[in-house]
Each structure stands twice: as C-alpha cells, then as structure tokens.
Design a binder for these strands. Structure first.
Lengths: 202, 202
DNA sequence: CCTACCGATCGGTAGG
DNA sequence: CCTACCGATCGGTAGG
C-alpha cells in the first residue's frame, strides 16, 4: 500500500468517526505517526482526500449495479441483484461508504454538483427497475421515486451497524433486506394490495 | 419567540446545511445580524445549542410514540401509528430532525452516552412492536433488530427530501411508508413467505 | 448587545 | 519527511 493510499484510508476512518470538518490535518498526521506538513508531500489538500473517496465510491457503486443489471431477468431478479450489489459495496467499504453518504456536502463546487448529479443518476437506476416492475405487474408502489429512496435508505443504514465479524454475512444481509423490502413485514397482503391477494385466493 | 429560541432555530438550520463543526459562531452571528460575542449573553456555549436540539427532539419522538401506542390494538395497528407519529415529528421539525440524526456525534460525554441510551430505548419500542407481531403471526421478519433498524432508516431518510409545499402531506408520506414496509413492493408474496401465501390459496 | 481581545488551532507553504 | 512558520479563524471572555 502506497503512502498516499495509507493517508487516504486513515483519513477515511477519521472522517467517518469525527466528521470531515472536525478532523484536522494534525489529527491525521498523529494517526499516521508523521508531522502535519509531511502529508502535503503526497496530497494537495484536505479536500482532495474527500474528493478521491467520494468519487471512488461513486464508481464502485456504478460498477456494481452495472454488473447486477447485465444478467437481465425480471424486475424482481434485477432489484434483488441490485440490492445485493449495493450491500456488497457498502460492507466491503464500510468507512468509505459512510464518508460517501454523509461527508459529501463538504465538497466545493464544481465537484459538489458533479457528485449530486452522479447520485441522482444512480438513484435513477433503481427507479428504472421499479418502473419496469410496476409496468409489468410485478410491483405495486405508491410512487416510484418514493419507493426508490425508501429502498436505498434502508440499504444505506447498513454501514452504521455492520460488523465484518458479526453473525450475518453481506450476502445474508442483502437477502434479508430483499425479503423485507419486497415482501414487507406482514404475513398477509393488505390495503392497496387487497386487489392482488384477493385474486390469489380465487 | 425569545432571542434564545431564535438563536437555537437559526443555529439548527446552519447545523443542518453546513454541519455542526463547519458552522462557526460568527456564521451564526451574521445570520442573526449581531456580533459573535453577543450570542454568549443568551447561551453558554456552541455545544449547549446542539444539546438542547438533540434532547428536545428525543423528547418529541418519545412523546409521539407514547401517544401512538396508548391506543393499543394489533401489532399492525400499533406499528402503523408509530410510523405515522415518527413521520409527523420528522416533518414538523425538519431541520432539528436532521441535526438530531446526524450531528449527535459532536456531543461530548457524559451527554453523548445519555443520547445513545435514549436512541436505543426508542429503537427498542419498535423492536417490541415487531416482536409482538411476530409472536402472534401478524409479521414475519428475518430478525427483529434488523427489521426495526431497516424500518427506522426508511423513515429517517424522509427529512432529506421532504418539502412542506410538496405534493405529499406528512400523513400521506406515513401511509405510503407503512404500505411499503408492511406489504413490500411485490404484488405476490414470495420466498420466506411462501408458507403463508400457500395457506392463503387453500 | 458591542468593542476589544485572548490563546489555541486551523489548512497550508517555504526551504531544506 | 522535518523544522519553522504564515495569515486566518476558531470558541469564548472581560468589561462596559
């Protein structure tokens, strides 16, 4: 691991626990065992580290969903695979994911705009799968955008409690999330879905 | 509105958009149209503002779930009402909720510990409802703690996109969230729930 | 609520 | 990678 990568990893961990603004270059230097000034031999600025982390993670999420959608299949299949892919990226990059999800607002323009556009593009991928599923009758949702955001927020909380040594593997977490989000908690379909459960009982 | 309340509200909005650490007392003073030193006539420290916001919101959430559970009913009824109560608090206190959810880590001990204990107690209320529903067959979940966290994360994302002038009212948002979380996206029950959908078709 | 100011710390640079 | 240091800004206080 190069010194630059080491700086980035250490900074990512600090950004996650203390937040970007509350992490000083002296904090980072101490964690690395060097002087603050020495960090600047490897990076240009504090924000450069944040930029690298945010855009590397954006790339990881896109590559993961690309792979997940490539195999095609039903909307249900694609959504399950997209969920699994997202959870894989989250759990394999716990610290960087937290920074990506919570510290992006400290990016300055024009990169802040680029980041937000990427995030919207990524959310649109989930919206598209949901739209396809609604169209062919696999899904029933109140609102496609609303559904996509609720799903992603359910996934994104994972990084706050996931522990590699915990009892659930990333694959099991993904499976449980798919189960909860696709089928819900209820043992019986109700309310809006009464139409469908009624058909089922005929 | 007293000056102290005015300071708290203005600070809350700044904490939400810039983050606690990145918001300076000079930023706050400028937003209020006074000098930074003058703020200290009304409050003791920057952290005091954060403390007041976090613990006031904790109280709001507890009062809301207390009222939601008081009416009793099935686990489904109670969960729906708890969801609606949570969303009401979130939407009526958009900025303060964001601070409560994201800036609490800047609290220092011993209040940080108190905060975390309260949050766990609140999550336990949702876990309890879920446990009751699993016990009497209303719900089927992979894991109770996991289910409670997934539900709460789905709810907590609301503050990032909710706009009072938007097309959905808080009550509609709550209804849509209940629908999604209780019944899921799928028009048919699958996987783990096959047991139940099978019984339904007999 | 202001002026005047404090010591501490910030991100970052110069020069080696 | 370090020493030495920069101007700017931080949260907060004294005294009115």
């Amino acid at each position: 691991m190069s010194r630059k990568e080491q700086i980035e990893r250490t900074a990512t961990a600090l950004f996650k626990t203390k937040g970007y603004s509350a992490t000083s270059m002296r904090d980072l230097a101490t964690a690395l065992g060097i002087e603050a000034a020495s960090i600047y031999s490897h990076i240009k600025s504090k924000e450069e580290i944040l930029q690298r982390v945010c855009f590397r993670m954006a790339q990881e999420f896109f590559e993961a969903i690309d792979a997940a959608e490539e195999a095609g299949g039903s909307a249900t299949d694609r959504l399950k695979r997209a969920i699994a892919a997202h959870v894989q990226v989250l759990t394999h990059n716990k610290e960087a994911s937290a920074v990506f999800l919570h510290e992006w607002r400290h990016l300055s323009e024009p990169l802040l705009g680029t980041y937000l556009a990427l995030r919207d593009k990524y959310e649109a991928r989930f919206r598209e799968i949901i739209r396809a599923g609604v169209k062919n009758g696999e899904f029933a949702v109140p609102d496609e955008k609303f559904a996509a955001l609720t799903i992603l927020s359910g996934l994104n909380w994972t990084h706050t409690w996931y522990k590699p040594e915990g009892k659930m593997t990333p694959a099991e977490i993904a499976e449980n999330l798919s189960e909860m989000l696709l089928n819900g908690l209820s043992t019986k379909k109700q309310a809006l879905h009464d139409t469908y459960s009624h058909l089922n009982t005929i």
